[in-house]
Design a binder for these strands. Sequence first.
DNA 1: TGAAAGTGTCTCGACATCAAGATACTTGGA
DNA 2: TCCAAGTATCTTGATGTCGAGACACTTTCA
Lengths: 165, 165
Amino acid sequence: MEDEVDRLVAAWRRERPDLDVEPLEVLSRVGRLSRHLDIARRSAFAEHALEPWEFDVLTALRRAGAPYQLSPGQLLTQTLVTSGTMTNRIDRLAGKGLVQRLPDPDDRRGVLVRLTRAGQERADAALSGLLDHERAILAELSPAQRGDLAALLRQLVAPFDNLAD
Amino acid sequence: MEDEVDRLVAAWRRERPDLDVEPLEVLSRVGRLSRHLDIARRSAFAEHALEPWEFDVLTALRRAGAPYQLSPGQLLTQTLVTSGTMTNRIDRLAGKGLVQRLPDPDDRRGVLVRLTRAGQERADAALSGLLDHERAILAELSPAQRGDLAALLRQLVAPFDNLAD
DNA sequence: TGAAAGTGTCTCGACATCAAGATACTTGGA
DNA sequence: TCCAAGTATCTTGATGTCGAGACACTTTCA
């Protein structure tokens, strides 16, 4: 089946036949799919009264394992946002009682962000919902295709992730 | 090579062994790769003094072919933003002399947005630069792998793109 | 030990986005 | 012809993000 990127690439070949636009076949699709997924995630989380950014922070803490705490700096590298943004997020999550800020006993500049019981429950519920939703989207592909796709994407992402971030 | 998503999936399997987190292998990678690409695009466009959103609008017009004009509504469907956002973007691009607004001769509610000569030159230059940059990123994959990846992504995106947007 | 460089977090102002609603025009049918 | 519904764009107010810089503390090394 055709998609918007097929139309986009065809248009470029017509308008700029001098250029090699093959990279768009992959990277424009990544961008557009991500945009669609953001929109879909937003509605999936609405059932749990969570914004996508709240989910991102809560689940990063949940994944860390007991006692479910990380520094703001560790949260930055996982969520790819800036420090000002993270401060703001932590403030709001703390205001809703989903996380709490604790002083870092080993470094007096530092802070630890810890998931509360309520935060953990919300994160767990929202994750199940998200996975159900995503499974439906991926039903377009066979299990083997999903494996191939994951492996190809890993090859592209790995250089970014393993750079000195 | 390992990436952040491998670590993320391993963490979930440890913390929530009851869940099937396989969907994350694909969709989390799409999200993270898109985020990295946004950051890389931003620096690629800086050479041409363009923001990513400016590039998106200008190239949509450029792709339309002579006389390089589209309605705001057509621009909406291509860029996946809301109408308020598009009004704002057109205002700013018009202020910089890269596009101009013309009344639609066939529908007095409507407006046509037309690329200026300066806008066309900026769009063309930025596109070449972007493609060079993206080719470097995709050099991780063989030509055959790039083709496979494009095809798999198309299968996932097509249902979204062909839905009644 | 002391100073310089490094690190971790937060503050602040600018700005792009969204959602909802307002406005103006067009279309289809009674 | 006229009205109701539909469509295209813009306006407004709230909000989240970024970037740069401030501040406090830690580390390194002479």
